[in-house]
Design a protein around this nucleic acid. Structure first.
Length: 424
RNA sequence: GUGGACGUAGCUCAGUCGGUAGAGUCCCGGAUUGUGAUUCCGGUUGUCGCGGGUUCAAGCCCCGUCGUCCACCCCA
């Protein structure tokens, strides 16, 4: 058994016990996103490695040690996408969709990062991404935040909190970074090992350190807010007041940093404390320089990604899935004649009641075991077809979830009967 | 990449001091010749993760290895 082939580490099978939750999340997101006029894109899972190196940042952890990269047969270096924005922008430019235009896109699917798996973090994980292009000003950021808030409402998720920050323009960011590095270098004896390493790779991340011993050092560090230009300050203020007006609670986190290099101005995360160490369920922000960086003309951009695996876990923790589904019926068979007739009978019933989820017993078994299967399938009713019913052109109807007498109904009447009794 | 915990039946788990591998559940049949979920009876299910070592004897002790989970790092 254990000698058999197992799934690749960190790449999970999603089984029938879980798929209803996935469908619920995907349906809700699709519904909301379409209600805001966003259009779907379907993008490749593989891109040229160079794309991610240039957009995410050469020295980020993702590019340095987390990408699934291999050579194609012709020698091109390809990479399984570790995130979606880069591919989306690439496609937009390649097909001329971003040239002097305003666009609202969404896409979804698996992403891949070679990290050590733990709760809420897998090597193949799933995101739905939302991206908007060609819109300067804070309006589009507010639109995205309101969309995400609506998605949580639609799913019935509470307990999520919103953190926001502004990183400022690219030039302000650079100035801040320089000051920060100087500050930290001056007190490098107070840095822990991780932070000393990050000083060279990603100094902003030091602000996010979980080590309590670093608290005092971090509290004294220069903040983004001290470097924001007037435009950034105004935009950020506009976003905050719009959130207040819309009744969306938020907290400002001056140390909130995104892991990818291309972010600027407004950034945000929706977080929960119910998922262990991996509490970010949605994150996004602005990336005004990205289109130009990939060879397009300067175009504002903004977007966010939803971590579906984590949202699904939250939904499961919240309790049973309230999927609106048609009722279930299970057709049990007694005798050869009934068995031969059953599939045809079921076809006719499905024609007349497309909303009914009808399972036909196959593979024999006693009536007793067939009834057991019916019960286990979750069916609301069992339909029984045996010699007597065949003779009388009737069918037995047994209600499995109600205290109610079993009945026999004419086969010609069964669709009308079920429609009435099951109310669908 | 680093650290800790854990690997026994399809699933959840027990297994004492090293002495012949266990329970519940699930599945199948019967009690009830055509009726589930309750009850009773019977039956099927094992490379104790894998490899080596110690021992008369290893699920149990030792070493290694693989896997899972959680945390660090990082991120959705």
């Amino acid at each position: 058994m254990l000698k058999g082939i197992q799934a690749v580490r960190g790449m999970n099978d999603i089984l029938p016990a879980e798929t209803p939750y996935w469908q619920q999340v995907e349906d809700a997101v699709r519904e909301v996103v379409q209600a805001y006029g966003y259009e779907e894109l379907r993008l490749p899972l593989l891109e040229k490695t160079e794309l991610f190196k240039r957009t995410i940042g050469e020295v980020t952890d993702i590019v340095e040690k987390e990408m699934y990269t291999f050579d194609d047969r012709n020698g091109d270096s390809l990479t399984l996408r570790p995130e979606g924005t880069a591919g989306c922008v690439r496609a937009g430019i390649e097909h001329g969709l971003l040239y002097n235009q305003v666009q609202r896109f969404w896409y979804g699917g698996p992403m891949f990062r070679h990290e050590r798996p733990q709760q809420g973090r897998y090597r193949q994980f799933h995101q739905i991404g939302v991206e908007a292009f060609g819109m300067a000003g804070p309006g589009i950021d507010v639109e995205h935040l309101l969309m995400t808030a609506r998605i949580w409402r639609r799913l019935g998720l509470d307990g999520l909190s919103l953190q926001i920050n502004s990183l400022g323009s690219t030039t302000a960011r650079r100035a801040h970074r320089e000051r920060l590095v100087n500050y930290l270098r001056g007190r490098s004896d107070e840095l822990d090992d991780d932070s000393r390493r990050r000083l060279e790779t990603n100094p902003l991340r030091i602000l996010d350190s979980k080590n309590p011993a670093m608290r005092a050092l971090i509290d004294g560090a220069p903040l983004f807010s001290e470097y924001l230009e007037e435009q950034s300050l105004n935009d950020f203020a506009a976003i905050k007041s719009a959130l207040t007006d819309a009744g969306v609670a938020y907290s400002e986190n001056p140390r909130l940093v995104r892991g990818l290099d291309y972010y600027n101005e407004t950034v945000y995360e929706w977080v929960t404390d119910q998922l262990g160490a991996q509490g970010t369920v949605c994150a996004g922000g602005r990336y005004d320089g990205l289109v130009e960086q990939l060879g397009g003309k300067p175009t504002p951009g903004a977007g966010f990604a939803l971590g579906l695996d984590r949202i699904v876990t939250l939904l499961q923790q919240a309790g049973d899935s309230l999927l609106l589904r048609g009722p279930r019926a299970y057709l049990a068979l007694v005798g050869l004649q009934a068995e031969q007739y059953s599939l045809l009978f079921a076809e006719r019933l499905r024609n007349r009641l497309p909303g009914l989820r009808l399972t036909v017993n196959c593979g024999g078994g006693s009536i007793k075991s067939q009834m057991k299967r019916a019960d286990k399938s979750g069916a609301d009713i069992a339909l029984v077809l045996g010699d007597e019913e065949m003779q009388n052109k009737q069918i037995g109807v047994k209600f499995l979830r109600l205290d109610r007498q079993q009945e026999r109904v004419d086969q010609d009447e069964i669709d009308r009967y079920l429609k009435q009794e099951l109310t669908f």
